[in-house]
Design a protein around this nucleic acid. Structure first.
Lengths: 143, 143
DNA sequence: TATTGTTATACTCTATAACTATA
DNA sequence: TATAGTTATAGAGTATAACAATA
């Protein structure tokens, strides 16, 4: 939701940092997805398909309704990135399998996200600040 | 984008934590907004209107196009939470002003977000883990 | 009866382009 | 000419409800 005006309290500062951090991560991931002409949901779906899974399971992973997955997969299938395969054990189920092109795209996407996110400008410092604030204001139960 | 399967490397673990953290913050903020029957964008707009600002400026704050702000504000205005007021200095500009009801809602929303986010389950520990990983893997330039 | 996936519906967000009224 | 806001349009995400096929 982005950074917000602060009244200067310490808790507010921490929440602002959390929002700011989350927004930065989201913005970065969205930009990377866009590089590959993928919407955020499509990218999230692709990343989840390292191994074939039922549509049902993808819906759970994306925390959205099954009916949404139909649309998301429709668009990926139109681009020949994913295939729906029948499940021999349960004929109601369709298993989602990446095509060769889909797998290549997934790899490139994953690499871009995971190699570059830690270097996103300002992120390391925000984490530092959060850590400092956290230690000053509350205990954490590190079992 | 949510947590993802990890191959066990330390950098991957850190990125997974960042995604997980961002997702947790987003999900929480979305749920709170929904309590007030607000979409995420509507909630973000409301929070930005602590002081009256031109629609133009709100678009910048929300990092979206001006045309989107028209729709977002339309919906808030329909619920008598916001008003468009003419700007005496520049007659092209409309300044967005919260109604009394809008201001009350904004306060309640702000309070819910800012008092409860630090206590969201698992968040403190995730920050701890991120801090640990960060210190082990890279330097931060704290001026 | 319950579950998987689809379809239909409706709403919100998003960007682009064309328009208006101002500047 | 340039800017503020609107409108039209089109695509994507979201949830709900109803449906067919299967369990």
């Amino acid at each position: 939701m982005g950074p917000l005006p602060t009244d200067g309290s310490q808790t507010e500062e921490m929440v602002d940092l959390l929002f700011s951090l989350a927004e930065r991560v989201r913005t970065y991931a969205e930009a990377v997805a866009a590089e590959f002409d993928l919407s955020p949901s499509q990218a999230a779906a692709l990343l989840r398909l390292e191994k074939p899974i039922p549509m049902n399971e993808l819906a759970t992973a994306l925390t959205c309704d099954r009916s949404n997955v139909t649309g998301i997969i429709d668009r990926l299938e139109r681009r020949d990135l994913v295939q729906r395969q029948p499940d021999s054990a349960d004929r109601r189920v369709k298993r989602l399998v990446l095509t060769q092109a889909g797998d290549r795209l997934r790899s490139r996407l994953h690499k871009r996200l995971y190699s570059d996110l830690p270097n996103v400008s300002g992120l390391a410092r925000e984490l530092e600040n959060l850590g400092t604030l956290l230690h000053g204001t509350q205990e954490t139960d590190e079992s």
